[in-house]
Structures are given as C-alpha cells and as structure tokens.
Nucleic acid binder design. Structure first.
Length: 809
DNA sequence: CTTACACGGGG
DNA sequence: GGGTACGTGTAAG
C-alpha cells in the first residue's frame, strides 16, 4: 500500500515493542505494524574488542528478570568528524536501555556512550529514513483490527513520492462552567463543544436545552452524551488533523477529567484507543493515535518566539485579528454562568462566540499548517512533535538525523556538572544599540536574518573546527577580537548541514519565481522556503544553548563576533547614505527615513547587498509610520495596516487591574495610531482623576490572582492569599486552582492586609493611591517618561492643574 | 536586600 | 522521552 505517513506511534504488545505507522491511502487509513525495530546505543571504549566480549556476556537484573543485550558488534563511525571504532549495542526492549547503559558505563575501559537518549519513535524514523507527512510504501499481511485495517509489515517501509491526499482538518473548542472564577474540572461541566472543519462543517454541541434559533446548535441530553457525540463526529468525519487553541494545556486535560467523572473512555484514536496525555512538569501534550492533534497555540507561540509574530497578547482573538485581519465576537468569561443559567440573548451570544473560536482556530491552523508540514519534512520528525518543538529542538533533531546518515556519533544531551559548567560560561553576544529614546515617525526596519547562518557557512564554524589542532599557523581563519582559530582544512558537520539548508532554500526561492502567487505550487514552495529559513536561523542559537548536543561556546561567540563586525559596517553605511539609525539589535536596523523616500531606503538596501559576500543579505522587514523607543529591547511600532508591534512592554497581565491594562493600551494607541503623545498624557490624567475622585468602577479595579497552593502552604502571604482566607472565614470553599478576585481597600497596613475579596467588598472605599501609584502609573510610565513626562505630570492633582496645562500646551 | 510567587494561552 | 520552561514582574519578609 502507498500513502501518506500521517503519524507514528510506539506501544507495547505483550511486552514486545511495536511501532505503528498510520498511513493515509487513497481510500482509507491503515495502521502498519513493525515489530522489527530495536533500540540501540554506541559504546566508545579504550579496547573495543575486550569490551565487546564483556558486553556480550553481560547480564543485569531488572524489569522482573535478567536483561541481556540483543546484540553487540563493532562498527566504524566518526566523532566530531574523526573516525572512531565503537560498539553498537541493541536492546531487546526499550525498557532495557537504561539498565544496560548503566551497567556498561561501569565496565573498565568504557569512555563514552552515545545515542541512548533517542526515544524509540524518533529513533525509528531516523533509522528507517522515513519522513512523516510524506509518501510511504508498506507491504505485508492485511487484517482488520479494532475497526482499522492493519498491515503487519514483511519488509521495511519505503519512502516514496506520492500525490499528497487532501487531509481532513477539524478544529474544536470547549466552553466550561466557571462559577468560582476558574473552572474546576472535577465539578464544573463542559457546557458546549464547538466544531468546524475544512469541508464546511459547523456545529455547537450542548446539553442545555434553551431556546435558540441558531441552526448549527445540536442539543444532547447530558454532558456525557455531548462528549460521546464529539467522539462520534471525529470518527464520522474521518479526521486526520484535529486542531484546537491551547488544547494541550486546557481543553484536553479538562475533557479528560470530565470523561473520567462520567466513566467515559475518550476513544478518539483511529484504532479506537483512548487519547494519551503526557503530563510533564511544565508541559502536557495529548496524543490521539492515528490522527494528529495540533495545538494551534503552540504553533503561534513558536512563531512569536522566533520573532515572526509580535503581539502584546497571544489570545485567539488577538492572533486572529493579526493574522486574518478580522474581528471575532468576544464573550467575558465572568458572564458564562449567567448565560448558562438564564439563557436569552446572552445564551445566543455564547453559542456564537463558541463557534467563532472553533472557526478562528481552523482558519489560523490552515494558514500555519503548511509551514509546519514543511518543517516536518525537513526535520524528519512527526507533525505532532514538530508542532510542539522549539526552534533549537528542530535544529537538533535535524542534526541528529543528518549525523546518523553520515555515521557521525550523536553527542549525548549534557546533564549534571557538564550542563552547570555550560551555564556558567558567558560570552559576548550581539551588538544592541542604545536606542534614540522617544517618539519617531517614518521608520524603516531592515533585518539581516540570514547573517548568522551565512557566517556559520562562510567561516566554517562548528564545535570541531574552533581552535582545531590540525591547522598550521596562517592556515586557519582568525575570529575578530577573540583570536579563535577556525579550521579551514576540514569542513565542519554543522556548517555542512546549514549550507545544505541554505542552498535548498535558495533553490526554492528560484523555483518560487516560476509559480504564480496563490497557486498550490507556490504556497507549498513558499512554506518550504520559510521552514528552511526558520531552521537556518536557528543554528546559531543552538550553538550557544547550554542544553544543546552540539553546543560550542567558542563557536557561538565567534559567530557573534563576526556578526558585530557586519552590523557595525551596515550602520555606518546607513548613516553615510543619509538614513538616521535610531536602533539596532543583533541583525536588525531601525532607521528614520530622515527626508529620504521609501524608494531611497530600498536603494540603500540594494547597495548594501551588492557589497555583501555570499548568501548574506539585508532584507526589508517593513516601513513603520510611527514608533516609540524606550530602552534596549523595549519599543512599539505601528505598521501601514495600523497593526501594533510591541516589544518588551507586555507586562500588564491578569494580575493587574483592568484600569491599568486599558490605560496602557489606550496610551499606546494614542501615541501610535493618533501620533499624539499629548492625547496619551491626557488619557493618563483622566484615568488618575477618575480613580482619585472615587469614580472608578469597581470591576475595573479587580485584580485576579490564582491561588496555586492550599492556603496553609504559603510562606509569603501575598494579597490573594489574605483575600482567600477572608473568603474562607465567611464560609466559602477555598481550594488550589481557584481564581481569587480582590480589590485593594483604603486603610492601614500592607497591601496584603487590605486585599478584600470582591464578594465582600460591598460599601468599602478603594485605595485610590494604590491604583494610581502601583497600577496605572507603572503600566504607562515606561512609555511616557521617554516622551518627557514625569509621573507627577500625569497624576491628577488640583493644585498642579495650572502648570500642567501649560506643560502639555 | 533576598526570597517567594505568579504571569502566559484556555474558561 | 525527559526535563531546570523561562524570563520577568511585584510584594513579602
């Protein structure tokens, strides 16, 4: 059978490890079963022959029996490009890997062990050279099992070229009952589940029978039936990719708990299996066998981390506005209970809002999936994994795969002292210019994104080439300022891979010109070149990341040293051309047009590019009509479409009062949208006047902070802890996870002493000074002070009015 | 001054 | 698979 390798899964059947490939063919999706893969690692030893003998006789007690290696044999590989003979040890079972490695580590003469920290699924893909989301051919015996056709492989699956089938993409979203502020999965039901797919399906499943005229609403008898219907629809629609927004951290864990309460198995798997949630300390991810669960938020977050999307907040609403240029309805989470209980127009709006979340998630997902599918192709790991990886992890898995192909040993991930030592190692990073603080108009931003990959390639920077022993004096390249010697006799592994990525991208950019924008071919080639660009730009970060396998402090600092050299040159050229550079960070250059036209700016860029060596290229990021620069790494810009680009200012969060958040937002808009710092100053004055005059609405003063532990566990008694105690005193049930909503009251004592839960605030007087001095002013002052305002200028006081009017003209 | 705790996305 | 998420903010102590 030939088809698309949608996903891969590893499990155990009667203690035998089994790898399952889910292959989407023209007619159906099958599970191909491979029982032939064994995990392995390599042992480097002083005397390989002797150690080989020791290993072959090895027996370790563990896993309820005696563990023996499946096989051991000597092979010739390379380590940092130098040939080395090592022993390949295969394990009968993945669980044997750990005890075997530890026992072997203790054998006399063993120097290092490689490749033990590659999980079976990933190792399988690398060893078999398969690419998920790409063509595969499987052969073997067919049988039906659990409702899915199964093929027991009789040979290794083969990577092939295929016409890509259209995938069934569905998005979903849940709304949950939240009477205590934050919903408690053990108690609070799921009110509704919305679904949208790429074939026009739009549905809201709910179990509350309130009048509504919305035709996409399907009413079910109970919450359990609603969940069952969701599972049924996923199966019926034969979903390949299931999308959600923050579903890893919220929806799936929540649904799982609700299903547990109802003793319902969440059998979303294509083979009828339950979803598997891997709960890790900080991240959880839910896997659905035979389908790919993609959390759109994690893709968005990835693009935010690499600087491709820059927003103040990454809510679905904000991301949708930014990416699709459309508004979606909003619904206050504090109004959920009322809508659920009382129905009416609120109920209709809640249903609409819920569906709009699923629709927006689908649209954003469809926009981003091509990129992540291409990353999957290049990196060679599953879409499920790739969509959740950081840029550094992507590069690392690409390198692991490339290393394996070349017979290069995979360095272990650094642990313990090695990691600690690396953290201690600091080096001079990129050049960041002190910005010309304040408000500017007519800005152009260039970036040098390909700077670091070009440096790595053209200067051959690799863990093995910095200060190598092989080059004679005069042969190696000398790094500016640092004096490191870079080997020129031997090509490094990292630059070789970077070069391949960069070259592939160059080819694609040429191919792109052959296609018309908007055609399928163009979109695919464009996603692919984008993927390659992201990867190329991530190698440097990896070199300097203490947890990276191919870490090289000397390599990383050599890259930044060359980088500083080039950016300084470019800044100088911009100045000579007549642009006024007001900020620069690493590989970017922000300049005022300074009377020049946009065309002139582009001419300048072309001029620079003419004189740059190799693949190095200065690119136009965008023109920005207005901007305000605050400090290094903190600035805000507005583009031609009126979109705000905010860097380093996103410090107003839910544990801040709404009045502070709104004032900060309004201030930024006044400065950037209206170009009026004066208007911004007046906004702050009005806000402080209102608060000091006792006129603020209580709901704008509420601070939401989550109680993360039982009250007794707190050593530092913060305001939300005191507020929670007060709630408990009047008989409320207080438990970890609850959102505490409180207001600061006027009076004596610390902030904590005066934190009153909203429910108990009643006729109390709020602490106006706190809201002005600790909420509004800190939120806006960073911005306002670079515009020449002091906090006293923005705090409404009667006696100062006269002077201030004069000041702001 | 150091230490403790919370934020993000979701509802 | 496994893990030290991660960088930055306020208030308590």
């Amino acid at each position: 059978m030939r088809g698309l390798l949608l996903d891969i899964d590893y499990s155990e059947e009667e203690t035998q490890p089994v790898t399952k490939l889910f292959v989407k063919g023209e007619k159906e999706t099958v599970a191909a079963i491979d029982r032939s893969f064994s995990q392995f690692f390599y042992v480097e030893a002083e005397n390989p022959r002797k150690v080989e003998k020791l290993i072959s006789m090895l027996e370790v007690a563990g896993n309820g029996g005696m563990i023996k290696p499946k096989s051991v044999k000597a092979v010739k590989l390379s380590r940092l490009s130098k040939e080395v003979e090592v022993l390949r040890v295969e394990a009968r079972h993945p669980n044997d890997m750990h005890p075997l490695r530890h026992k072997i580590r203790e054998l006399a003469g063993v120097k290092e062990i490689y490749g033990y920290d590659i999980p079976p699924m990933r190792g399988y893909l690398i060893d078999r050279q398969l690419t998920p989301m790409d063509g595969v051919e499987v052969t073997g015996e067919v049988e039906d099992e659990n409702g899915i056709k199964t093929i027991t492989l009789d040979s290794h699956p083969k990577k092939i070229e295929i016409e890509k089938p259209k995938l069934n993409v569905m998005s979903f979203d849940i709304e949950v009952f939240n009477p205590t502020g934050s919903p408690r999965p053990e108690k609070d039901p799921i009110m509704m589940i919305s679904l949208a797919d790429n074939r026009g399906l739009k549905k809201v499943l709910t179990w509350r029978n309130l009048p509504t005229d919305l035709d996409y609403v399907e009413i079910l008898p109970t919450e359990k039936d609603t969940l069952k219907r969701f599972i049924e629809l996923v199966d019926e629609m034969d979903v390949d990719i299931l999308l959600g927004y923050n579903t890893d951290l919220f929806d799936f864990p929540y649904i799982k708990e609700r299903a547990k309460q109802h003793r319902l198995k969440l059998t979303l798997g294509r083979d009828g299996t339950e979803v598997v949630t891997r709960r890790r300390k900080m991240a959880t991810a839910t896997r659905i066998r035979g389908r790919v669960h993609v959390d759109v938020f994690s893709m968005v977050n990835f693009l935010a981390n690499i600087g491709n999307i820059r927003l103040i907040h990454y809510t679905l609403e904000d991301v949708y506005r930014h990416m699709m240029g459309k508004e979606k309805p909003d619904f206050e989470f504090t109004k959920f209970v009322e809508a659920w209980e009382k129905g009416g127009e609120h109920w209709n709006r809640l249903l609409e809002y819920s569906l709009s979340d699923a629709v927006a998630t689908l649209e954003i997902g469809e926009e981003l999936l091509p990129l992540f599918v291409e990353l999957t192709h290049v990196v060679g790991q599953s879409l499920f994994d790739v969509s959740r990886m950081s840029a550094g992890q992507l590069v690392e898995w690409l390198l692991i795969s490339e290393a394996y192909k070349r017979g290069e040993l995979i360095p272990p991930r650094p642990v313990g002292d090695e990691f600690e030592e690396r953290v201690e190692e600091t080096f001079v990073g990129a050049y960041v210019m002190e910005p010309e603080k304040g408000y500017h108009e007519n800005l152009v931003v260039f970036d040098f994104r390909s700077l670091y990959p070009s440096i790595i390639v053209s200067h051959n920077i690799d863990p093995s080439t910095v200060n190598c022993k092989c080059c004679k004096k005069g042969e190696a390249t000398v790094v500016p300022e640092l004096g490191h010697m870079i080997c020129q006799a031997r090509r490094g592994f990292v630059p070789e891979v970077v070069e391949r990525v960069v070259k592939l991208r160059g080819d694609l950019k040429a191919e792109l010109k052959k296609h018309k924008k908007g055609t399928h071919e163009y979109e695919i080639a464009n996603a692919r070149q984008w993927a390659l660009k992201i990867l190329a730009n991530s190698f440097y970060g990896m070199l300097g990341y203490p947890r990276a396998r191919w870490y090289s402090k000397e390599g990383a600092e050599s890259v930044t040293s060359f980088g500083r050299h080039y950016i300084h040159e470019t800044i100088k050229m911009a100045g000579d051309f007549g642009l006024k550079v007001c900020y620069s960070d690493t590989d970017s250059l922000h300049a005022k047009l300074n009377g020049k036209s946009r065309e002139d700016a582009i001419k300048f860029m072309q001029e620079v590019n003419k004189n740059l060596p190799g693949i190095m290229e200065l690119e136009l990021e965008a023109f920005y009509p207005r901007g305000v620069f605050i400090t290094k790494k903190r600035y805000a810009l507005i583009d031609d479409e009126g979109r705000l680009v905010v860097k380093g200012l996103e410090f107003v969060r839910r544990d801040w009062a709404a009045i502070a958040k709104h004032t900060q937002e309004d201030v930024l808009k006044a400065i950037l949208k209206d170009g009026s710092p004066e208007k911004a100053a007046n906004i702050v004055l009005d806000a402080t006047k209102m608060v000091l005059g006792g006129k603020a609405k209580l709901e704008d003063l509420i601070i939401y902070t989550q109680l993360k532990m039982p009250i007794e566990s707190y050593r530092a008694i913060g305001p939300h802890v005191v507020a929670a105690k007060r709630l408990r005193e009047v008989g409320h049930e207080v438990e970890p996870g609850m959102m505490i909503a409180y207001i600061e009251a006027k009076g004596a004592g610390s902030i904590s002493d005066r934190a009153i839960p909203v429910e108990l605030f009643k006729d109390k007087e709020y602490d106006a000074d706190y809201y002005v001095d600790n909420q509004i002013l800190p939120a806006v002052m960073r911005i306002m002070e670079v515009l020449g305002y002091r906090d006293a200028d923005l705090k409404f006081e009667k006696k100062k009015q006269m002077g201030l009017d004069k000041f702001i003209g």
